[in-house]
């Protein structure tokens, strides 16, 4: 019997892997992918709880989260493009001009 908890654990694991990657990787593009992982983890939990409670609000939320993700990727990637053109690197540790 698969319970909601199973799906929640799966969502949490996905989210956690996203966090792990975000903390460990240095490539900006990969960091963006990790953010996608986190959003998907949260989405799985949303949809699982949605089925649990029988309301559609959670699904609507996931839909909006997808919109946000798309926006974020579009703007984020174009920023990365710009950065790479100017600095010739994608290493976050080297992008620390915005100190103070």
């Amino acid at each position: 019997m698969v319970t909601t908890s199973h799906y929640l654990i799966l969502g949490s694991a996905l989210f956690g892997i996203g966090v792990l990657g975000f903390l460990m990787k240095r490539n900006v593009i990969v960091l963006l992918m990790c953010v996608e992982l986190m959003i998907n983890g949260a989405g799985v939990s949303f949809v699982a709880l949605c089925r649990q409670t029988g309301s559609l609000e959670g699904q609507v939320f996931v839909l909006f989260a997808m919109v946000i993700a798309a926006v974020e990727i579009a703007v984020g990637l174009s920023l990365i493009l710009l950065i790479f053109r100017n600095r010739a690197t994608l290493d976050v540790d080297k992008l620390e001009v915005l100190k103070w």
């Binding site: 966090v19 903390l23 960091l31 976050v92 540790d93 620390e96 915005l98 100190k99 103070w100």
Partner: peptide
């Protein structure tokens, strides 16, 4: 405290998490 503000995104993320 400003010494913590090193401008490195990953440190900020680490503190957040």
């Amino acid at each position: 405290v400003p010494k913590l503000q090193i401008g490195a995104v990953r440190w900020y993320a680490l503190f957040m998490v």
